[in-house]
């Protein structure tokens, strides 16, 4: 039975009528047309679907939309402020930390959440926090550089 869910996505309040079990990922992509959030595995093991829910990283492919009721969601489309990119986005560009870029939105949002709670992570902490995020182009070295660069910039 469909239910109505209220949530704030990228600063805009939304009311969605949907099956409560429908994954948040599908609602973002198919109802709100926010296609920056990607499907990668559907079982929470690749991180491509990462979004921020009340500032924390969640895997939207295994998050039923009902769990997002009254929550604040940030997707990759909501990270920049106008034309001004978030420091993590800037760092990914500066390091060229993308190949196909399909994992990039999830990588960036995971890094944003990480730096929010730990602004000065060690390499081990970055790897531990981001280990769920897969990059099949295996562009991990440059992604690590980007996260380090963003951490430096945020601390300054």
């Amino acid at each position: 039975m469909d239910v109505t869910i209220s949530l704030t996505v990228n600063g805009i309040e939304r009311a969605i009528t949907a099956d409560p079990e429908r994954p948040l990922l599908d609602v973002l992509r198919e109802e709100l047309h926010l296609t920056g959030t990607k499907y990668g595995c559907g079982e929470g093991r690749c991180g491509a679907c990462s979004v921020l829910m009340d500032g924390k990283r969640v895997l939207s492919c295994v998050t039923p939309v009902a769990q997002a009721d009254k929550k604040t969601i940030t997707t990759i489309e909501g990270l920049a402020t106008g034309d001004s990119l978030h420091p993590v986005q800037e760092a990914f560009l500066a390091e060229g930390a993308m190949q196909c870029g399909y994992c990039t939105p999830g990588m960036i949002l995971t890094a944003v959440a990480l730096l929010e709670k730990n602004p000065d992570p060690t390499d081990e902490e970055i790897a531990a926090e981001m280990n769920v995020n897969l990059c099949r182009c295996n562009g991990y070295p440059k992604i690590l550089n980007a996260v380090r660069r963003a951490a430096e910039k945020i601390q300054r």
């Binding site: 296609t35 959030t37 990607k38 990759i76 560009l93």
Partner: peptide, 15 residues
Amino acid sequence: NWRDLVTGAHRYPSD
């Protein structure tokens, strides 16, 4: 088109 990859603006086939 790198900028479109970090902002989520790029539309992949699945998008």
